[in-house]
Amino acid sequence: MTFSLFIIYKIVLVVVVFLISLVIAMYSTYAERKVAAFMQDRLGPNRAGPFGILQPVADGVKMFMKEEIIPQVSNKFLFILGPSIAMFTSCITGAVIPWGTSLHLFGHDFSLQVTDINIGILYIMAVTSIGVYGIMIGGWASNNKYSLLGALRASSQMISYEVAMGLAIIALVMHTGTLSLKAIAAQQVGWHWNVFYQPVGFLIFLVCAFAETNRTPFDLPESDSELIGGYHTEYSSMKLGFYLFAEYINMFISSAIMSTLYFGGYNMPLIGRLHLSPNTAAILGVVFLFAKIFFFIFFFMWVRWTVPRFRFDQLMNLGWKILIPLSIFWVAITGFVTLMIHR
C-alpha cells in the first residue's frame, strides 16, 4: 500500500466513523424520546416527517437558531472550552474500536479500525477520564451554584466509578491477555464471548458505564429535578447542544465498547458454517456489531425510563463499598482460575 493510498484510506475511515457516530447520536435523541414515549404508553414525536424521523433535524435547527447566551459573570474562555472538550473527547474514542475485520479491495487489505494501538482499552480509559474536564470546566465557568454542584458531582462520580471500571477491565485483561481491542475482538470467535467467562466483570462494567456516561440512574450531575440542569444550567443554543450530543455519542461509544469487550464485537456465532466470501463476512460482521450496539443503546434508554435516580450518598456507597470490593474479589477469582488453567 502506497503512502498516499494509506492516508486517503485512513481519512475516509475517520470521516465515516465520525459521521456514523454523529448520525447515531442524532437519532439516539429521537430514539430516546420514542422509547420514553412507548414505555409511558404514548406515541412520542411523530409530526416531522413519517413517524417523526426528521425530528432530530428539527431539533438541530432549533438548537442552532436559539439565542446564544454567555453569562456576564462567567469565565468566557472556559465557558466555551467546556462543551468543546466534552464533544472532542467523546468523538475521539471511536478511533480504537474495531468496527469489523478487514475488507479486501483492489488487492489491498483495508482494516475497519482507525488505529490498532496495543493499549486500546487504556486509551479509552484515558479519554473518558479527560472527558470529565468538559463538565467540570463548563460547570465552574458558568459561575452558578447549581452548575458548580453538578460539576463537583460529575467529577467525584466519575473518579469513583473509574476505579471499579478499571478493576473490571483488569479482570478482563487477565482473561484475554492483551490490551488491544482488535486482539480481544478477534479472540471471541463463535460463542467464546467474554461475557460467559466474565459475567460479574461485565455487570460491574455495565454499571460503571452508566455512571461514566452520566445516564440515569446515575445522572446526578445534571439531575433536572434537583439542580435545574446541573453543569449545563447556564448553557444555551449549540453549546448546550454539544453537551447533550456528547452524552449521546458517549452512550454510542460505550455500547460499542461493551459489545467489543464482552459480546464478541463483530463476531457472529455459526457464521463460519455459511462459507461466505471474506468481504461479505466482514460486512455482515459490521452489521452484527451495530445490531449489538443498538441493543445496548436501547438498553441504556430502557434502564433510564425504569430505574429512578440514586441519592448521592447511595451512589457513593454503591461505588466504593459494593462495586470496588466486588471487582477486587472478581480480579482475585479470575487470577486464581487463570493460574489453575495455565498450570
Binding site: 480509559m125 484515558a126 473518558t128 477520564s129 470529565v132 467540570m136 467529577s155 467525584s156 473518579i159 473509574e162
Partner: peptide, 10 residues
C-alpha cells in the same frame, strides 16, 4: 491528568 488534576480542580 485524569485523576489527580481532577481532584486538584475539585
Amino acid at each position: 491528568a485524569g485523576a489527580i488534576m481532577v481532584l486538584f480542580l475539585f
